[in-house]
């Protein structure tokens, strides 16, 4: 099996429309990246600045982390695209199991004093 699978191509089979679409997608991705950098800086400022109380900064930076998580997953890792049904199912089940894992470990271990 596998005829010509290891041979390079001279050009791309992409149609003009597909190329335009890809350039748009690229612009969206770069915008998403700029936004991620922005919220990362925001998170660092929220913690470094004396003016913002710690009790407010923690939920705020956790929210920013969730936003960035979804941006990375949906845009950079293409979970938003069609034909990503199974990848979405895998990540949803991963997160579904992760949440109780983090919470129960935190509470169980935190109750014991070392």
């Amino acid at each position: 099996m596998g005829e010509n699978l290891s041979q390079p191509f001279t050009d791309s089979a992409m149609s003009k429309d597909e190329k335009i679409q890809m350039e748009q997608e690229k612009r969206v991705q770069i915008t998403a990246f700029a936004f991620m950098i922005f919220i990362t800086i925001l998170a660092f400022i929220a913690v470094a600045s004396e003016a913002i109380p710690y009790g407010f900064a923690v939920p705020f930076i956790l929210l920013l982390a969730m936003v960035q998580f979804f941006l990375q997953m949906f845009y950079f890792m293409h979970l938003k695209d069609k034909d990503h049904g199974w990848p979405n199912a895998m990540m949803v089940s991963g997160i579904f199991l992760s949440a109780p894992t983090v919470i129960s470990l935190t509470i169980l271990l935190g109750e014991v004093k070392f």
């Binding site: 949440a99 894992t101 919470i103």
Partner: peptide, 17 residues
């Protein structure tokens, strides 16, 4: 990657505890 997510969750939970 779904499995990796859970593995990292156990390490995060341990650290937080």
């Amino acid at each position: 990657l779904g499995g990796e997510t859970i593995m990292f969750a156990t390490f995060f939970g341990t650290y937080l505890g």
